[in-house]
C-alpha cells in the first residue's frame, strides 16, 4: 500500500456504554438533588426549576462550539481527518443543545413573560448562532468529498465562531431596552450548587454524545477507506 495521508481507523470497542450509563445516572441524580434542595423562588415559584436544564444546556452549547473552533483550526493546520470528524460531532451535539436552550427558554418565557418569544439580545443571538450551525451541518450534508467537506466546514465553523461576539454586540445595540440578565447575581447559594452540579452532569452527557458520534463517523470513514482499497485491489 502507498503511504498516503494517515487514514481514520475504525474505533476499538471500549467502555463507552458504561460511561454513558454513568453520565445518565449523574444527570438524573443532579436533577433530583436540585429539585429537592432548592426552595421555590420568591417571584417565580417552582418555575425556577427550569434553571437546572436551561442554563447548563446553554453553557454546554458554548463548550461544544468552542470545541468546533479549536478542532477546525487544528484540522486546517495539521490536516488530520479525525480532527474534522471530531469538530463535526461537536457541531451536531452543540446544535442539539442550542435547540434545547431555545426551546427550554421559550417554555420558561411563556409563563414568566407571557409570550413565547421576545427579541431580546440573548434570545436573538442564540437563535442566530443556531442558524449558523444549521448552515454548517447542511454544508456537510451536501458535500461528499471528505477533504473538501473538511476544509469547507472548518472555514464555515471558524467564521461562525468569529461572528458570535459581533452578532451579540449588534443585537444588544439593536435592543437597547433589553432586560437585566436573568437574576444571576442575586441568586442564593443553593441555586448555584444545583446549577453547577447539573452543568457537570450535562458535560458528561455531552462528552458521551460527542464520543459516540465521533466513533460512528470514524466507522463510516474506515468502511469507505476499506471499500476504496478493495476496489483498487490493494486489500489482502
Amino acid at each position: 500500500m502507498t503511504t498516503a495521508a494517515p487514514t481514520v481507523e475504525a474505533p476499538r470497542p471500549a467502555r463507552w456504554p458504561v460511561f454513558g450509563a454513568v453520565s445518565l445516572a449523574a444527570l438524573v441524580a443532579t436533577q433530583v438533588f436540585s429539585f429537592l434542595t432548592s426552595p421555590p423562588d420568591q417571584n417565580m415559584g417552582q418555575l425556577e426549576k427550569i434553571l437546572y436544564v436551561h442554563v447548563p444546556a446553554a453553557w454546554v452549547m458554548f463548550v461544544c462550539f468552542a470545541i468546533v473552533l479549536v478542532y477546525s483550526l487544528r484540522f486546517l493546520w495539521k490536516g488530520r481527518e479525525d480532527d474534522d470528524l471530531l469538530a463535526a460531532a461537536a457541531a451536531e451535539v452543540g446544535a442539539i443543545f442550542n435547540g434545547l436552550t431555545l426551546v427550554l427558554g421559550m417554555i420558561w418565557g411563556k409563563p414568566a413573560w407571557g409570550v413565547w418569544w421576545v427579541w431580546d439580545a440573548r434570545l436573538t443571538s442564540t437563535l442566530v448562532l443556531f442558524l449558523v450551525f444549521v448552515g454548517y451541518l447542511a454544508l456537510r450534508a451536501f458535500v461528499e468529498d471528505p477533504q473538501r467537506r473538511g476544509q469547507w466546514s472548518a472555514a464555515v465553523g471558524i467564521l461562525g465562531a468569529l461572528n458570535v461576539p459581533i452578532v451579540w454586540m449588534s443585537v444588544t445595540w439593536w435592543r437597547t431596552l433589553h432586560q437585566m440578565p436573568s437574576s444571576m447575581r442575586s441568586m442564593a447559594k443553593i441555586y448555584w450548587v444545583g446549577m453547577f452540579a447539573n452543568f457537570g452532569a450535562f458535560l458528561l452527557v455531552m462528552a458521551y454524545f460527542i464520543r459516540r458520534r465521533y466513533d460512528a463517523a470514524c466507522t463510516v470513514r474506515a468502511a469507505e477507506h476499506a471499500s476504496q482499497a478493495a476496489a483498487l485491489g490493494g486489500l489482502d
Binding site: 448552515g135 452578532v167 449588534s170 443585537v171
Partner: peptide, 12 residues
Amino acid sequence: LLPLLLFPMLVP
C-alpha cells in the same frame, strides 16, 4: 446552501 450559510452570518 448559499442563503442558508450567508444570511445568518450577515445579521450584524
